[in-house]
Structure formats: C-alpha cells, structure tokens
Design a protein around this nucleic acid. Structure first.
Lengths: 203, 203
DNA sequence: GTCTATATGCCGATAGAC
DNA sequence: GTCTATCGGCATATAGAC
C-alpha cells in the first residue's frame, strides 16, 4: 500500500504543478488565449500528459476559479469568527477588509485569475463557479448585519449596493496594486477609512 | 463627387457596424475567443470582407478600446467644465461620479469591452490604449485638486489611492448593475455618499 | 504517468473573381 | 465592396507505445 500512496502523492504534486501554471497563465493572458500546450510546457510536461490528470481544459479552469475565491472566503470568514462576539462595527469591517486584501494580493495567481477571467469562461463553467461567489457575498451580508447591530449606519444607504461596492472596489486593486509602491496595510487602512468615514471632513 | 461621398458614407456605416458587433462580442466573450468570422457574421458579412475596412483584428480591438474610454472621458470632462468655477467639493465630485456611471452603463458594449478586455489584448495594443487611460486619470486628479481647494479632506488619506479606488469601484458596477433592479441615479447617489461621507454615522 | 503521433477542426489573413 | 477559396498554423483531444 506504500507504493500506491507514493504514486498518489506524486500524481497529486503533478496535478498541483499544472494548476499553478494554469493560474499564472490565465491571470497574465486571459482564458481563451492560453493553450493546453503552454500550460503543459510551464508545468514541464507534454500536452498529452495533462489529460491523465484532468479530463479537459474546462476542468482545469473551474478548479483555478474556485481555489481563488475559496482562499479569500476562508481568510475573511476566519477574521469574522475571531471578531464577531465583541468587536465594534468599525473593527469588524476593517479587519475583514484587511483579510480580503491580504489574501487577494498575496495569492494573485489564483485570485486574480478568478477576478479577471470569470467573465471569459464558457457559460457552464461560469454557473458552476457562481455558487462559491454567492456564498462569499452571503458572508459579507452576515458581517454587515452584525456590524449594523454594533454601530450606526447612514440610513439613506442601500446595503446591497454598499456590499457590491465594497467587494468590487477591493477586487479592483488587483489591476494596479504594486507591493513596491505601498504596503497592503496602508492600502487596507485607506480603503477602510474611505468606506467607513468617507473623503470629507478633517477626522 | 456625390457618388464618392455616398460611397464613403456607406463604407463608414459598414465600418461602424463591424465595430458595434465587435464591441458587443468582446464584452460578452473576451478578446481571444471572438473570431473574425463571428464578428463578420454579426455584422452581416463574410470574414474576408472585413479586411477591406480594417487591416487586422488588432486594429478593430484598439478602436473599440479607445471609443469606450473616450466616451467616459468626454462625459466627465464636460461635467467638470460646467462645475469647476463655482461648485463646492461635494457637488464637483458627485456630478463627475454620476457622469462616469451614466456613460459607463448606457454604452455598455464599448465601455465594458474596455474595462473587461484591456488585460487580455496583446501587449502592443495595451500600451497604445494606455495613453487614453492616463489622460482619464489625469482628469480625475484635476477634479480632486480643485475639490480639495473648496472643501476639507481627511488628512490621513492618500489621494492617489482614493482616485484609484474611485475609478475602480465605478468600473466594477459593470459586472453587476442591472437597470431593471435600480436606477443609475440611485446608484450614483449611494456611491457618492459612501465615497464622500462613508457608511458610519446617522447623517 | 509520460511520451509521440495524429485526428479533426477553427483560426487570421490573403488572392482574385465579380 | 463583397464574395469564395485557400494557405499555413495552432487548437483540443485521443490512441497506443513504453
């Protein structure tokens, strides 16, 4: 049985190498323009061999998509669980914003593959990936509901729009954030400040 | 000369039909997966005929990209010119936010082609399209500078980050906004309120 | 598990008739 | 201006040797 386990582990590693290569390439060039040949080359194999691990290119992209959003979901969920009992509205939200940004920008291959290529994949893949997206939106709805019971929100704001703006603006940082120009901590501080208190006023 | 003009007008119309079809298809499916054959079919021609009007697929996508961002630029610039003399910070910014959203969401084929496929096109096209993007960012820097001389901004905010968040969050509405579910006016009001005053407080 | 070889088909672009 | 026909190339996926 040791033999079989070794083989499984080896296969698992190869599988992972293919996924890593695919995520990086999808992020850089989009979905359709990345061929199975270049994925295989980047994973140090020949194209035909990939089909031992995945039954199609679509199966690869679906897994890349889901890993990307699950990473962010887990980070934000764990931040929420740490703070949900006692933290005030400001802390709850700013810690979750930080968790989202940190994961998003530290696993950019998978997360930005998700943000950037979601709109390019075939319809059936998109609807599979939609479930995880919905789950993540639901998590933020919970966070905002808890936060609203611990602080005062402006009554003229639509909370669905706020949530969509929040997630959309965080994800958009993928298109321009450069760790050389600024830290994730500074970025998160600015985003939380704007979302919670806005640009106007002298603080 | 009438004959020649008629011919030119006819060619111009056909050219426009090709661009419209390409913008819609690029928006729906991304850049690489849209073939010249389907663009031609959507424009009611055969593939070979497209090459009478454009010398390559890249020439088509570059024009779609630039039309998209120029539309938004012009709308925001004209809002700025109307208000730059007398309006206060809040008015200046919220009017510009509205102008951006209205144009973005009413010409979705061109504008969302730009937002969604910019990261997928060949490198040389991207650097051509970058000029117009830079010009648009510069316009917002001007608006924010004028606004800051008419109101008080929080001193701990990085204005470059604010500008990037603003443009990023507005563009992200393309991924979810549905005119059946809500009006652009309501959307713009919520976005301006958040960006200027934040979620917290009872206003 | 990975290889080579190959089936089958669509791609961008061009040539030349009309 | 638009058509048909076609070039050369690269795509996904499969078959079968090792």
């Amino acid at each position: 049985m040791v033999q079989a386990t070794n083989k499984n582990e080896r296969a698992e590693k190869t599988r992972q190498r293919i996924l890593d290569a695919a995520a990086r390439l999808f992020r850089e060039r989009g979905y359709a323009s990345v061929s199975l040949r270049v994925i295989a080359t980047a994973a140090e194999m020949k194209a035909g061999s990939v089909y031992y691990h995945f039954k199609s290119k679509e199966e690869i992209v679906l897994e890349v998509l889901n890993v990307g959003i699950e990473l962010v979901f887990s980070a934000v969920e764990s931040s929420y669980e740490k703070n949900r009992e006692h933290a005030d509205a400001e802390t709850l939200i700013s810690r979750a914003v930080f968790a989202h940004l940190e994961t998003l920008l530290k696993h950019t291959d998978y997360t930005s593959a998700n943000v950037r290529i979601y709109g390019q994949v075939p319809e059936n893949i998109r609807s599979d990936a939609l479930n995880v997206r919905r789950k993540y939106e639901g998590l933020w709805d919970d966070i905002l509901k808890t936060a609203s019971s611990r602080g005062t929100f402006k009554s003229d704001l639509d909370m669905r729009i706020f949530r969509l703006m929040l997630i959309g603006s965080l994800n958009a940082t993928l298109e321009w954030f450069d760790p050389v120009q600024g830290s994730i901590e500074e970025l998160a501080k600015n985003y939380s400040q704007i979302l919670l208190n806005g640009l106007l006023g002298d603080k």
